[in-house]
Design a binder for these strands. Structure first.
Length: 504
RNA sequence: GGCUGGGUAGCUCAGCUGGUUAGAGCACGGCACUCAUAAUGCCGGGGUCGCGGGUUCGAGUCCCGCCCCAGCUACCA
């Protein structure tokens, strides 16, 4: 069975990773875990974009060689995502030989299959010496570079290799319209369709003046334009062009930020079509994390570090906040006020308190061992079925906010059930049969919640799972979510899952 | 300027192809309970559904105009 192959955008390292990057990683990770949960084989990939032209300057500024500097950045990013419990199976860096091979092979495949798609032409543009790059219209104000208004822009010509992107407009358009290549959510698809309908210009895909990058096949004095190279990481990580790469390719899902939609939804499919490689099934472009309503930006002091967010309430809570509050579609705001509110409400008073009260009652009234009990027939079992159905539908639709909401809904149902049945009153009255009847559904509900929470909060879900006397982990335990059974399990009240800080 | 979305309770948002008194969560007020992390449950106050026209027996829900916000407007990773 071909694995569900999911990717995130490879990171371009121009500073420390921040919560904006983190949303994409934990969202993709939750999706990867969701597919694993249901027993599918999954291949989940992240990596680094290392052929950017600023690498050399950045390395110099840090007093390192480019290779040293890149190693350090790669390590830092990878370690950060691991701290956030990301479960990627591979980490591709575009300076690796396997990627250089993949890029070379794809360009040669285009040349072999569609020779006219690659041609030498003149690129003419305004070059900013300060930035050391060509500037587009949107980067120019009053005829000057926005970043370096004191310097003159120099009209410059360069002989480059061009990719005949224009030729692939209709095929890409058709692929999107037919659903063979899905662009989601709809707002992004509309955006892409509009651009396609307006027509495409060819793009230059080699650069002559850059000493850092992948040599352009057949033009040794040039390097591959960094975007053209970067996109190919999704393919080179599969082993392309070696036989068997199609055991993984085509990708099921590329998770990206909305800012790079065009490259992924226009240029990338055109490249693949030109090379005769199948298109990925879907691109999902998420929104951005904002800070006080403004785009997260290091230079404007509007970023929040991942370290400080993790220090606040831990990695699971950060994942929960990002996916529950901000979600994976629209932009959303990060603030410590909202983070605290979600932590206190959803996690400490919600899920955590529910686990505490139920496990405490099971210890107190059952001595921690769940009796066989009656079949699942209580209202709470039915509520669990409903919430699970909502959860499933949301997760399949990549509606992570909705999936998380279904978890909170079930927590709320369980709390309502507890008050309605008042197990403590049953215990006092010595109504043991009824007490068993009431605690059974609650234990089953917790087991379900553990499984449902596992894509969002892997460590906390594991802690719940263990507290319920289960072996191994909730990963892959989808059947348990559907038909929870805890009869005979030895349950122990865990440490507070989500302790409240004394100061807040 | 063009294009695409959006403007619904203090805040974040649901409201599908038009149809009973416009909903949820959070926040706020009151009541109840004690198994639980002073946690939980119930009840309640609160909205001219951006503005102005129109179609219709009937419009947040369709049409026209206007105002405001966001994104995109392509060789920036």
């Amino acid at each position: 069975m071909k694995p569900y192959y999911i990717t995130t955008a490879i990171d371009y390292s121009n500073g420390d990773p921040h919560v904006g990057h983190a949303l994409e990683k934990v969202g993709a990770d939750a999706l990867a875990r969701w597919h694993r949960l249901r027993g599918e084989p999954v291949r989940f990939i992240m990596g680094m974009d290392e052929n950017a032209q600023k690498v050399i300057q950045a390395a110099e500024a840090a007093g390192r060689t480019p290779a040293e500097w890149l190693d350090a950045m790669s390590e830092r990013f990878d370690a950060t995502w691991r701290r956030l419990e990301c479960s990627h199976d591979d980490w591709i860096r575009t300076t690796e030989p396997r990627h250089v091979r993949g890029v070379t092979a794809l360009i040669e495949a285009i040349r072999a299959r569609n020779p006219d798609d690659l041609y030498v032409g003149e690129y003419e543009g305004l070059y900013c010496v300060g930035c050391e790059e060509f500037k587009s219209e949107s980067q120019i104000r009053d005829g000057r570079c926005i970043e370096h208004p004191s310097r003159d822009l120099i009209p410059t010509r360069e002989r480059n290799t061009f990719f005949r992107l224009s030729r692939w407009r209709d095929p890409v358009l058709a692929a999107i319209r037919s659903g063979a290549f899905r662009v989601e959510p709809a707002i992004r698809r509309n955006e892409v369709l509009r651009v396609l309908e307006d027509g495409l210009q060819d793009i230059s895909i080699s650069r002559g003046r850059l000493p850092w990058g992948i040599p352009f096949p057949g033009a040794a004095d040039q390097t591959v334009y960094v975007w053209f190279d970067a996109l190919i990481n999704y393919l080179s990580v599969t082993g392309y062009p070696d036989a068997g790469y199609d055991g993984l390719w085509p990708a099921d899902l590329h998770v990206i930020g909305k800012g790079i939609t065009r490259f992924h939804c226009i240029v990338w499919p055109a490249m693949l079509l030109a090379a005769g490689v199948p298109l990925p099934h879907m691109v999902w472009a998420h929104g951005y994390v904002q800070w006080g309503g403004a785009k997260v930006s290091k230079s404007e002091g509007t970023s929040v570090s991942i370290d400080s967010a993790i220090a606040r309430h831990g990695p699971d809570a950060l994942r929960w906040f990002l996916l529950r509050e901000i979600g994976f579609e629209n932009d959303g705001d990060f603030s410590f006020e909202r983070f605290d509110a979600r932590y206190d409400g959803d996690l400490a008073n919600g899920l955590g308190n529910l686990v505490a009260r139920v496990t405490a009652m099971i210890e107190k009234y059952w001595n921690g061992v769940v009796p066989a009990g009656p079949a699942p027939a209580e209202p709470l079992d039915a509520a669990g079925d409903r919430c699970l159905a909502e959860y499933t539908a949301a997760m399949d639709a990549i509606d992570l906010k909705g999936g998380a909401a279904a978890i909170s809904q079930l927590v709320s149902e369980a709390n309502g059930y507890i008050v309605a049945t008042a197990p403590w009153a049953l215990a006092k009255a010595g109504e043991d049969a009824r007490l068993d009847f009431v605690l059974g559904p609650l234990a089953r509900c917790l087991l379900r919640l553990s499984v449902m929470a596992s894509p969002f909060m892997p460590a906390k879900a594991q802690a719940m799972w263990t507290a319920l006397g289960q072996e191994r982990s909730p990963e892959g335990a989808w059947r348990v979510a559907q038909q929870p059974d805890v009869a005979g399990a030895r349950i122990a009240k865990p440490e507070n899952l989500f302790p409240k800080p004394a100061t807040s």
